[in-house]
Measured scan of single mutants.
Amino acid sequence: MKTQEELTEIVRDHFSDMGEAATLYVQVYESSLESLVGGVIFEDGRHYTFVYENEDLVYE
Protein backbone atom coordinates (compact mmCIF):
# COMPACT_ATOMS: atom_id res chain seq x y z
CA MET A 1 0.00 0.00 0.00
CA LYS A 2 1.31 3.44 -0.93
CA THR A 3 1.51 6.41 1.44
CA GLN A 4 -0.44 9.61 0.81
CA GLU A 5 2.85 11.25 -0.17
CA GLU A 6 3.44 8.58 -2.83
CA LEU A 7 -0.13 8.92 -4.11
CA THR A 8 0.29 12.71 -4.27
CA GLU A 9 3.47 12.32 -6.32
CA ILE A 10 1.72 9.97 -8.77
CA VAL A 11 -1.11 12.49 -9.23
CA ARG A 12 1.35 15.39 -9.58
CA ASP A 13 3.30 13.47 -12.25
CA HIS A 14 0.11 12.80 -14.21
CA PHE A 15 -0.99 16.43 -14.21
CA SER A 16 2.51 17.69 -15.11
CA ASP A 17 1.81 16.55 -18.68
CA MET A 18 -1.03 19.12 -18.80
CA GLY A 19 1.03 22.18 -17.85
CA GLU A 20 2.54 24.01 -14.90
CA ALA A 21 0.56 23.38 -11.71
CA ALA A 22 0.33 26.34 -9.35
CA THR A 23 -1.30 24.32 -6.56
CA LEU A 24 -2.14 20.69 -5.91
CA TYR A 25 -4.31 20.20 -2.84
CA VAL A 26 -5.62 17.14 -1.02
CA GLN A 27 -8.94 17.03 0.80
CA VAL A 28 -7.73 15.09 3.81
CA TYR A 29 -11.22 14.62 5.27
CA GLU A 30 -12.34 12.81 2.07
CA SER A 31 -9.10 10.90 1.42
CA SER A 32 -8.00 7.63 2.98
CA LEU A 33 -5.08 5.22 2.86
CA GLU A 34 -6.55 3.74 -0.33
CA SER A 35 -7.65 6.90 -2.15
CA LEU A 36 -6.68 10.52 -2.64
CA VAL A 37 -9.27 13.25 -3.25
CA GLY A 38 -8.33 16.78 -4.16
CA GLY A 39 -7.72 19.23 -6.94
CA VAL A 40 -5.12 20.97 -9.03
CA ILE A 41 -4.99 24.58 -10.18
CA PHE A 42 -2.76 25.41 -13.13
CA GLU A 43 -0.83 28.63 -13.75
CA ASP A 44 -3.23 29.47 -16.62
CA GLY A 45 -6.26 29.29 -14.29
CA ARG A 46 -7.58 25.83 -15.18
CA HIS A 47 -8.89 23.91 -12.17
CA TYR A 48 -9.61 20.19 -11.96
CA THR A 49 -10.85 18.07 -9.09
CA PHE A 50 -9.69 14.47 -8.89
CA VAL A 51 -10.07 11.11 -7.20
CA TYR A 52 -7.14 8.68 -7.35
CA GLU A 53 -8.07 5.17 -6.25
CA ASN A 54 -6.86 1.68 -7.18
CA GLU A 55 -4.24 3.15 -9.55
CA ASP A 56 -7.01 4.95 -11.47
CA LEU A 57 -7.17 8.75 -11.73
CA VAL A 58 -10.54 10.33 -12.50
CA TYR A 59 -10.69 14.11 -12.89
CA GLU A 60 -13.04 16.79 -14.14
Rank of each mutant, 00 (worst) to 15 (best):
E43F: 07
E6H: 06
Y29S: 04
Q27V: 14
E30N: 15
H47S: 05
T49H: 11
E34K: 07
V28T: 09
T3C: 14
T23M: 12
E20Q: 12
T8E: 14
G38K: 00
L36M: 08
S31G: 09
T49Q: 06
H14F: 15
Y48P: 00
E60H: 12
S32H: 11
I10L: 09
Y59I: 13
H47W: 08
L36S: 01
A22L: 15
V26N: 01
V11P: 01
D56N: 15
L33R: 12
S32G: 10
Q27E: 13
K2G: 04
R46L: 05
G45I: 04
H14I: 14
L36P: 00
Y48C: 08
E34W: 06
G39H: 12
L33W: 08
Y52D: 00
D13L: 15
L36G: 00
A22M: 15
G38T: 04
L7W: 06
Y25T: 06
Q27W: 13
Q27G: 05
E43S: 12
L24N: 01
L24W: 10
V40G: 01
S31P: 14
S32R: 06
H14K: 12
E9F: 07
V51P: 01
R12C: 14
A21Q: 10
V58W: 12
V11M: 04
G39T: 11
S35Q: 13
E53A: 13
E20M: 13
E55K: 11
S31F: 08
G45F: 07
E55P: 04
F15K: 00
H14T: 06
L24E: 03
L33D: 08
V40Y: 02
V40M: 03
E9K: 13
R46K: 05
Y29M: 04
E60Y: 13
S31R: 04
D56L: 15
L7S: 01
E5A: 12
A21E: 08
L57G: 01
D17L: 15
T23N: 09
E20F: 13
E43W: 08
T49M: 08
E53Q: 13
V40F: 04
Y59C: 10
L57M: 07
D56A: 15
G19T: 05
M1E: 07
Y29R: 00
R12I: 08
E5K: 08
V11G: 02
K2E: 02
G19R: 04
E5V: 08
S31D: 07
G19Q: 02
E60W: 14
V28S: 13
V37G: 03
L36V: 07
I41K: 05
F15M: 04
T23Y: 14
V58H: 12
D17C: 15
M18V: 05
E55A: 11
E9R: 09
E53H: 10
K2T: 05
I41Q: 03
M1Q: 11
E9W: 09
V40K: 00
A22V: 14
E20S: 12
L33P: 12
L7T: 04
L24C: 09
E34L: 07
T23S: 09
V58S: 10
G45D: 01
T3R: 06
H14L: 15
S16A: 12
Y59G: 03
S16F: 08
I41E: 02
V11T: 01
D44V: 04
T3P: 04
E9G: 07
V58A: 08
F50S: 00
V11H: 01
E34Y: 07
T3W: 06
M1S: 10
I41R: 04
Y25M: 05
Y48F: 12
D17Q: 15
E34C: 13
G38M: 08
S35G: 06
L36I: 12
E34D: 07
V58F: 11
E5Y: 08
E9P: 01
F50K: 00
D44E: 02
E20N: 13
N54L: 07
D56G: 13
S16E: 06
S32E: 11
G45N: 02
D44Q: 01
L57W: 06
Y59D: 01
L7Y: 02
E30S: 13
H14Y: 15
M18P: 03
A22Q: 10
K2N: 05
G19A: 05
F42G: 00
E20Y: 12
E55N: 14
S31A: 13
G45T: 02
G19K: 03
G45P: 03
F50H: 00
G45Q: 01
M1P: 13
Y25E: 05
E34P: 12
E53G: 05
F15T: 02
E43V: 11
L36W: 07
D56I: 15
G39D: 07
E60A: 10
E5P: 04
D13W: 12
E55V: 05
G19V: 05
V28P: 02
V40I: 14
D17I: 14
F42Y: 05
D17M: 15
L36A: 03
D44M: 05
T49W: 11
E43Q: 11
I10S: 02
H14Q: 07
D13A: 15
L24D: 02
A22D: 07
H14G: 04
H14A: 11
D56P: 03
E55Y: 10
G19F: 09
A21I: 15
V28A: 12
D56W: 13
A22E: 07
T8R: 07
F50T: 00
E30C: 15
M18N: 03
E43G: 09
V37C: 12
T49N: 05
I10K: 05
E6C: 13
Y25L: 06
G39Q: 10
G38P: 01
Y59N: 01
V37E: 04
E6T: 06
E60D: 07
G39S: 11
L7F: 02
I10T: 05
F50I: 02
I41D: 00
K2S: 05
S35W: 10
V58G: 04
E9V: 09
E30A: 08
E43A: 13
Y48D: 01
Y29H: 06
E9Q: 14
D44I: 07
A21K: 11
V58K: 13
E60C: 15
H47A: 04
Q4I: 14
H47K: 06
G19P: 04
T23D: 08
M18G: 05
F50D: 00
T8V: 15
M18E: 04
F50E: 00
G38F: 09
E53R: 10
G45V: 05
D13I: 14
G38Q: 03
A21F: 14
L7N: 03
S16P: 05
D44R: 00
H14W: 14
T49S: 07
L57P: 01
D56H: 15
I10Y: 06
F50N: 00
V51F: 08
D17H: 15
T8P: 02
Y25C: 11
I10W: 07
V11Q: 02
M1N: 12
A22S: 10
G19W: 06
V26Q: 01
F15C: 10
T8Q: 09
L36D: 00
G39Y: 15
L7D: 01
G19M: 07
S16D: 06
Y52V: 04
T23E: 11
Q4C: 15
V40W: 02
V51R: 11
T49R: 06
T23V: 13
V37H: 09
V40H: 00
F15Q: 01
M1W: 11
F42Q: 00
G45H: 01
E6M: 10
K2C: 13
F42W: 04
F15I: 04
E55Q: 12
Y52E: 01
V26A: 02
L24F: 12
E55R: 09
D44K: 00
G38D: 01
R46P: 02
R46W: 06
E60T: 12
E6G: 03
S35T: 14
H14D: 02
V37T: 10
E43Y: 07
E53L: 13
K2D: 05
R46D: 02
E20H: 12
A21H: 11
M1F: 13
V40Q: 01
Y52K: 00
V26M: 02
Y29F: 10
G39I: 14
Y48N: 01
R12E: 03
E6V: 06
N54S: 06
E53D: 05
S35E: 03
E30V: 13
F50C: 05
Y59R: 01
Y59P: 02
L57H: 03
Q27R: 06
S32A: 11
E30T: 09
F15V: 02
E5Q: 10
D56Y: 14
G38H: 02
Q4T: 05
H47L: 06
N54K: 09
L24V: 13
R12S: 04
E30P: 04
G39W: 15
I10R: 06
D56M: 15
S16Q: 10
N54W: 06
Y25R: 03
G19I: 05
I10M: 08
E20T: 14
A21M: 15
